[in-house]
């Protein structure tokens, strides 16, 4: 009994430690930065929660608040636009990757054609290629030769179909969909494309959700490539904005605004996470995934 009590105590304390950075982010966003830099950190805003930082970022602050913040140029930052841009990039990337990876995953799981194993071997081998190897020439190709600087194509086209996604969908489809189902649909005269869209995709919705969320989180949180590709203010993603804002205020970081921005940026991902957490956790536990 004491063993169990200790076990629960440990697990609960650990859960608090894992949650605490989220909590402190929210509390920090609700107080002015003068209160953040008291002699000790606060568990709750001493003067009650204030939404000034959110109003400043969302451009709905009163002129007095703007004047008090000392950020006359705050109206140059269009935070809603950055969230929208990031959601747009991630959504299109998810739609493309889930569709093309499912198409290829189905083909490798259920079809038989010459050189199938060799081609699948090539796909697996590319997983071992470190991304750093061609990072510089990839950047030059995308930003220079193709002229995709200040566009979102670099986030969509090069990862149209990925080795990881094809591998994952192949595993899911091979273990879920019986061959007889495909065979009977073929006998009924369905084309391969119809089989994928009308039989495989409805059954594989769960697997597609797992791949979709992993893709969404990765693209939504992307920073390195964004930092190199996007320079027009209107096209900024929320990660790029937060990173630039942090670096621009490195001597006296505006933590109230940084926290408020971080909270708003994380909300879409938290919603996705909690809606689909069961599938996601089980997907990661199956070992097929390294998040």
């Amino acid at each position: 009994m004491i063993g169990y009590a200790l076990l629960y105590a440990f697990l609960v304390i650990l859960a608090i430690i894992f949650m605490f950075p989220f909590y402190s982010m929210v509390v920090g966003s609700l107080m002015p930065k003068e209160e953040l830099f008291r002699s000790y950190p606060q568990l709750w805003p001493p003067n009650g929660p204030q939404l000034t930082a959110y109003r400043l970022l969302l451009q709905i602050a009163s002129p007095e608040e703007v004047a008090a913040s000392g950020l006359q140029n705050i109206s140059n930052y269009n935070f809603i636009r950055y969230i929208f841009n990031t959601l747009l990039i991630a959504s299109v990337a998810v739609a493309l990757q889930v569709f093309f990876n499912t198409l290829a995953g189905y083909t490798f799981a259920k079809r038989h054609f010459p050189f199938k194993n060799q081609l699948f071997g090539v796909i697996l081998a590319t997983l071992l290629l470190p991304a750093a190897i061609n990072f510089v020439p990839f950047y030059l190709l995308v930003a220079g030769t193709l002229g995709w600087k200040d566009t979102y194509w670099p986030f969509w086209i090069p990862n149209l179909a990925t080795a990881f996604g094809i591998f994952l969908m192949r595993q899911f489809i091979a273990s879920t969909i019986p061959d007889e189902l495909i065979d009977s649909a073929t006998i009924d005269g369905a084309s391969q494309f119809q089989i994928v869209t009308r039989i495989v995709m409805p059954i594989m919705a769960g697997g597609m959700v797992v791949l979709g969320i992993l893709t969404f989180v990765a693209v939504y949180n992307e920073y390195i490539l964004t930092n190199l590709i996007i320079s027009k203010p209107d096209l900024r993603t929320v990660q790029l904005f937060l990173a630039n804002f942090k670096q621009a205020t490195i001597r006296a970081p505006l933590y109230d605004l940084l926290f408020a921005g971080s909270v708003m940026a994380t909300i879409p991902l938290l919603v996705l996470f909690f809606v689909f957490q069961r599938k996601l956790v089980e997907g990661v536990m199956s070992g097929a995934i390294k998040g």
Binding site: L14, F18, M19, S24, G28, Y220, Y223, P253, F259, S262
Partner: peptide, 24 residues
């Protein structure tokens, strides 16, 4: 189920945001 979900939650945060939170 609750514990494993909570421990996995930091997965949704970005490197940028984690750096902001940890620097404070």
């Amino acid at each position: 189920g609750i514990f494993r979900t909570l421990y996995f939650l930091p997965f949704v945060t970005s490197g940028v945001i984690v750096a902001i939170v940890f620097s404070q």
